[in-house]
Design a protein around this nucleic acid. Structure first.
Lengths: 148, 148
DNA sequence: GTAAGTACGTACAAAAAGGTGAGTGTCATG
DNA sequence: CATGACACTCACCTTTTTGTACGTACTTAC
């Protein structure tokens, strides 16, 4: 087994509730402790809509309704919320042109692009291996129905 | 801007509801279409508990309560559910020893290890860049309160 | 003049996720 | 002899997330 996870493991006990002395630990995040702010950021990028938006924006700047058309099934409300979160976290840049039919453009920041590439790699891996997964699930289902 | 997202973009219109002729397209997943099964798998690995469990298991085989102790804040119910999902998707292997105090071990499969490495890379990136993100959010908050 | 597009905000309702506390059966420890 | 550990499961409840439908302010197209 790999041992690369030991580093992040040591941060587990960080991120407690004491306000004064542990401020730097809090700043660093520490995904493993409960009630940690970095968990929120993580949820923003790994939520389904967050992921899909990041992947769309990896192809270049888009307008609101362009994203909406590409990401099938997202409601306007959810898309607006997702984009606001990603903007607040510094992953996307929002540029408003004060013209009469509103025109807003969304672009990835440097951090957003790096994040999106990781997310994209993960999405691609799952897409690639989905046939195996589906086959496994069918096999398990068949086995379950055979055993009852 | 990068153009690597164009490949997955072409799959957007796949994954429709027709049962017969598009079975192979359905098998391939196509994360971008609505109501697609690969979205479910994706949600399993990118949910907060899913992520943390994968990272813990990257360090090696663990028992149920070991995982629970390492992943702060997870309830027994959620952990059981998460592990069942990951097992059904073929990311973790569950090995039961039929001994008198129950003994169950969880290990990553090959697919699970590959996935976990991607997830871990993403988590590490966010952890690393969290200080910047927090600083940005504080700056935005300060700007907002200054403007009102 | 009516519809549609643009980029959202808001109110309400539905659905999903998550927490809580109990119970299972056996054994080791105090 | 009572408690706790083990690995869960179940029923019930609360919280969070998400969807739906509508409104906005203005313009272009039919």
């Amino acid at each position: 087994m790999v041992k690369i996870a030991d580093g992040i493991m040591d941060e587990m006990s960080a991120c407690s509730d004491q306000p004064a002395s542990l401020a730097s630990a809090l700043q660093r995040g520490a995904l493993f402790a409960a009630n940690c702010p970095s968990r929120t950021v993580f949820k923003h990028v790994t939520s389904l809509w967050g992921v899909l938006v990041l992947i769309v924006l990896l192809a270049g700047t888009h307008r609101f309704s362009e994203i909406r058309r590409k990401v099938n099934g997202v409601s306007e409300k959810m898309l607006a919320q997702t984009l606001q979160n990603l903007e607040a976290d510094g992953f996307v840049l929002r540029k408003v042109y004060p013209v009469v039919p509103p025109h807003v453009e969304y672009t990835l920041t440097a951090l957003g692009e790096e994040t999106a590439r990781h997310v994209y790699a993960l999405a691609e891996l799952i897409e690639r291996s989905y046939p195996q997964i589906a086959a496994l699930q069918n096999a398990q289902q068949a086995g379950a129905s055979a055993s009852r």
